[in-house]
Amino acid sequence: MGLSLSASRRVSRCFSDSPDFNSACDSEFEACLSLTQHAFQGVRPYQLHSAANRLHRSLHGTHPLVSHWLPAPPTRSQTDRAYVAVVSRRSGKEPSDDESLGRAEFRAFAVEVFTEAVVANARKALLRRVPIGVAGIAGIGVVSRSGKDLVAAAIGIYALAVATNVYLSLAA
């Protein structure tokens, strides 16, 4: 879907530029260090899923994208993919289990995982809304015996309106 690339950038920018999001990331980074009693310089891979869950909990009522598009925290597979993406940007290779994320990398991880989760949920909403509306428009077209061109134009306009609505709601 062409929508997802620019939507990903839009969502990522919203998270990166959000003071609430950055503050929550910094607080969670410190909490992760405290949980390991500062034995490591950063957040360990095994801490990332629970850190993402706590971040979700702290952002759910305050950040509009999280409140609107993330009813549940990111999944384990989303956190794992985000970790791999962040570490591979650093070293250009697959991560190992003993690598930890510093403050900036943890923030990049959080942006990555929340961006992926928001865009995935927006894509699901789009794929759920369009077919229902198309079926309704086609049904009305059959009942009213409208021309195929008119029904096709109405379907196109509806699909474009739904896609635009979803895309515009991805700005905080």
Rank of each mutant, 00 (worst) to 15 (best):
L70M: 14
V118M: 04
H49I: 02
L55D: 03
W69Y: 11
S23F: 05
A120G: 06
A39P: 00
F106C: 08
A172L: 07
Q41C: 05
A152H: 10
A104K: 15
Q47F: 01
M1H: 15
L35A: 10
D26P: 01
S8E: 14
S169F: 01
L59T: 02
E28S: 08
S16Y: 02
V43W: 00
H49C: 03
R44N: 04
E112L: 03
L35R: 11
A85M: 15
D97K: 15
D26H: 08
L5H: 15
V119E: 02
A122L: 04
G139F: 12
N53T: 10
S4T: 14
A125K: 06
F29Y: 08
A172S: 10
V119P: 00
P131V: 09
C25F: 01
M1I: 14
A138R: 12
L150T: 13
F114M: 11
L150H: 10
K148D: 12
N53A: 07
Y83A: 12
T164D: 10
L65I: 06
G147V: 06
A172K: 05
K148H: 10
T79Q: 05
F15C: 00
V11H: 00
P19Q: 03
F21W: 01
L59C: 03
A122H: 00
N22A: 11
G92F: 13
G61C: 03
R89W: 15
D17A: 08
L168S: 08
K124P: 01
L170C: 09
L55R: 02
S67A: 12
A31C: 07
F21K: 00
G156H: 05
I155V: 14
G42A: 02
H56N: 01
S12G: 14
A138K: 11
G139N: 12
G141S: 14
Y46G: 03
R123D: 11
D17K: 05
V166A: 00
Q37H: 12
F109A: 04
G139V: 10
A7Q: 10
F21E: 00
R44Y: 02
P71F: 06
V143Y: 14
L168F: 07
R44A: 04
